[in-house]
Design a protein around this nucleic acid. Structure first.
Length: 440
RNA sequence: CGGAACGUAGCGCAGCUUGGUAGCGCACUGGUCUGGGGGACCAGGGGUCGUCGGUUCAAAUCCGGCCGUUCCGACCA
């Protein structure tokens, strides 16, 4: 993509309404624009990141679940059946269609997926089953804030599991547990699993996944040792191995402030290993048994020929929130430093002297080379001052910048800058091919 | 939902106290120069001052209603 053709409205100054880093940077780097309180339009740059995050999630979730797509608008009837139509409260946006029928904009999908299940699955032989979708949700938050981190409309990955027994349900829960860690790992986020309250979803087993970031909303108390844990490759068929791994990972003390118990913390965690910090919740696992399967009649015939309600769990990831969380975890005073896996572009080309024929020729050559390799590249071909181009490239956080200017060309060089470290390497033009291949 | 602010050009703001036909910086358009970290100069374009009503000869400015946005708190992916 040439910068001259890209719809990328960047801002030099900070908009007053944006108080936290990720919100400021998302506005300044032209990723989103607010259309009303807690509701955002995603501009091309922001959308690219959102899609990259989705891609990572799909890759991992497809190993243990199947994707489908449920609607944003739901019928209120199933919510009345589950009892949540009244329980959910004012956060749920409801409205009436031309036939005087009450609808709602889904804040979550337990009812709908359970309804789908109940109408199509009759036998234990069809289990286990785990389904997920990535869809926009709406929760009419009292006070939306922090941009995309706490919007009213947000994109969420939500998965739902159906099993014949609690034992099987826990197996699925554990697979999700590890799948989540792998997902966040791939985004270069350190996610801490923290035991959690189940809130309005209900149930008796639940973990939150918290990203450590100074701008986070919730306080977390940790045993530092959990940060050292690596996530190995996982064989999802090995339920014993998985269960062991989850046991290990949950053996460290980790609690959000609502579950924090000072005495317990002091007793369990050695003084040198205590860490109190802030975090952002990006994922949540729930096991809730038959809470929805009973009222919504999601029942199957068991091996013994009895009709039994299925055991369920649900598993969410805040996809749009992750965009903000990643920025909070990866930025400096110049702007965003995208992890390569989610970056809107892998490589940026900055032509420092647009009207210099040698600079432009080399820039064009490298650009076309990258295009032919199908690399996502942003080529700043505008006739602007070098400072403007460099500052913008830093702001939008492209991981690798190729800088082409008269100074380097004189010696047959161009420069390669790594955004994250700021390291600049002089590259001989004749080594271009080799250098590029190393980045891919 | 309790508390507090704010609403003037795309963004950041001044003007309001003391009413008199709207201004600055950035951004934008045309031009000249410049050319390795948001450069300089010249010339331009863009605003029914959130909205409705009231007071007044006259309202961005004073008064009232409404709408919107933000911040702090209680609540959440």
């Amino acid at each position: 993509m040439k910068r001259s053709n890209l719809f990328l409205p960047t801002l030099k100054e900070n908009p007053t309404e944006a108080k936290i880093t990720s919100h400021r940077l998302m506005l300044r780097s032209g990723m989103v624009r607010q259309s009303s309180s807690g509701i955002y339009s995603w501009l091309p740059m922001g959308l690219k990141v959102l899609k990259n995050i989705e891609k990572i999630i799909r890759l991992e979730q497809d190993l243990i679940a199947q994707e489908l797509l449920m609607p944003t608008i739901q019928d209120s009837e199933i919510w009345k059946k589950s009892g949540r139509f009244n329980d959910y409260g004012k956060e749920m946006l409801t409205f009436i269609d031309r036939h005087e029928h009450q609808l709602l904009y889904g804040p979550t999908n337990e009812e709908l997926i359970t309804d789908i299940f109940s109408k199509n699955i009759m036998s234990y032989k069809s289990l286990p089953l785990c389904l997920y979708h990535i869809q926009w949700k709406f929760r009419d938050e009292i006070r939306p804030r922090f941009g995309v981190m706490r919007g009213r409309e947000f994109l969420m990955k939500d998965a739902y599991s159906f099993d014949i027994s609690k034992e099987d349900a826990i197996k699925c829960y554990n697979r999700m547990f590890l799948s989540y860690l792998r997902i966040f790992n791939k985004m270069e986020l350190k996610a801490i699993p923290v035991s959690a309250d189940t809130g309005p979803i209900g149930g008796d087993l639940s973990h939150e996944f918290i990203i450590l970031a100074d701008t986070g909303e919730s306080e977390v108390y940790l045993d530092k040792n959990i940060l050292k844990e690596e996530i190995p490759n996982i064989n999802y068929n090995d339920s014993k191995g998985i269960s062991k791994l989850v046991d290990t990972l949950t053996s460290f003390y980790a609690a959000a402030d609502d579950k924090y118990d000072e005495e317990e913390y002091m007793n369990i965690v050695n003084e040198n290993n205590r860490l109190k910090t802030k975090g952002i919740e990006v994922g949540h696992l729930f096991y809730f048994g038959s809470k929805y399967s009973i009222p919504l009649e999601a029942k199957v015939n068991s091996k013994e020929g009895k009709v039994v309600p299925v055991e369920m769990g649900s598993y969410g990831i805040g996809v749009s929130r992750l965009v903000g969380a990643i920025i909070d975890a990866h930025h400096d005073d110049k702007g965003i430093c995208w992890p390569e896996s989610v970056s809107p572009f892998l490589i940026g080309i900055v032509n420092l002297r647009q009207n210099d024929i040698e600079c432009s020729n080399l820039s064009d050559t490298i650009y076309n080379n990258l295009l032919s390799k199908d690399v996502s590249v942003l080529y700043d071909d505008r006739d602007e001052g070098a400072g403007i181009k460099l500052a913008e490239m830093d702001l939008i956080g492209v991981p690798w910048q190729i800088r082409i200017g008269p100074r380097g060309i004189k010696n047959g060089n161009f420069e390669l800058l790594q955004r994250k470290t700021g390291d600049i390497t002089e590259i001989k033009v004749k080594d271009m091919e080799k250098t590029i291949n190393k980045l891919l």
